[in-house]
Computed example of a mutant assay.
Amino acid sequence: MKISIVIPAHNEAETIAQCLASVKIAIEQLPSTFTASILVVLDSCTDDTLRIVQAAGVNYLCCYYQCVGQVRDIGIRHAIAHGANWLACTDADSTVPIDWLVQQMEHLNQQRTDMICGVVSVDNWDHLSSQTQQAYIAHYQDKMGHSHIHGANLSFSSDAYLATGGFAHMTCHEDVDLVNRFKEKHYAITWSNRVRVMTSSRLQARAKEGFGNFLGNLEKETHNIDFR
């Protein structure tokens, strides 16, 4: 099996080195029967992201879409055209654990699956209130069979991706849209908390309605909630 890890990036100079280092370590854990490579898709970057990616020695594409769905799609299709039959998505502000890819392959060995929706852990709560942390923990289903969708932790087969039309060219919620189309076509989806990533808790996220926006709204809401 040939695996490609596709990472969109827009001005991620502060975080992408750690992201790439963690993915490289996860790749090293795979058995020799698997091959894996990283592809970063740099979208309208004006900082040092490109220089850092070049220094890391990974493959990259440059584009100017300012649209995360289109950026993910061009990266996935490029990887498929170069032989990838399993695609793993994460984000440039996230890091993956050592067994991130191994756990995905174990799921594939255990049962037929066309997509794996993983979970995320928040990297830092220090700038958020304890009420927000409690509300998040109460909301989040960190278990097998959860119902969360994260572009930072989504993987799937190339055949199913092409059959569903791939990521829509949307500026947000492209991950939810793709999962819904997998459901509509009755592809097998594994909802796993064994496959997880550590993601940024920054509130100034690149996607306007992404995870950072969710945390920011939760922070605002919890100011009006008494947790005593």
Results as ranks from 00 to 15, higher is better:
143 K>T: 11
167 F>K: 00
147 S>L: 08
193 N>G: 00
192 S>D: 05
50 L>K: 05
140 Y>S: 10
123 D>K: 07
80 I>G: 01
199 T>C: 10
136 Y>Q: 08
49 T>G: 06
121 S>N: 11
15 T>I: 10
67 C>H: 12
31 P>M: 10
12 E>Y: 07
45 C>Y: 04
93 D>A: 10
81 A>Q: 12
152 A>W: 07
163 A>Q: 15
225 I>R: 03
194 R>M: 05
107 H>V: 12
70 Q>A: 15
175 D>R: 04
93 D>L: 12
103 Q>P: 05
147 S>G: 05
15 T>G: 11
16 I>K: 07
111 Q>R: 14
139 H>Y: 10
172 C>D: 07
125 W>C: 01
216 G>D: 04
171 T>R: 01
132 T>Y: 08
31 P>R: 12
222 T>P: 05
216 G>M: 09
202 R>S: 15
129 S>N: 12
91 D>Q: 00
181 R>W: 01
202 R>E: 13
172 C>S: 10
36 A>H: 14
84 A>P: 06
201 S>G: 14
214 F>S: 03
105 M>F: 07
188 A>Y: 11
39 L>M: 06
17 A>D: 15
87 L>D: 00
74 I>F: 00
19 C>A: 13
86 W>P: 01
153 N>Q: 11
70 Q>T: 15
94 S>C: 15
215 L>I: 04
126 D>R: 06
158 S>N: 07
14 E>C: 08
104 Q>D: 12
51 R>Y: 04
174 E>D: 09
12 E>S: 11
89 C>P: 02
228 R>E: 03
208 K>Y: 09
31 P>Q: 12
210 G>Y: 02
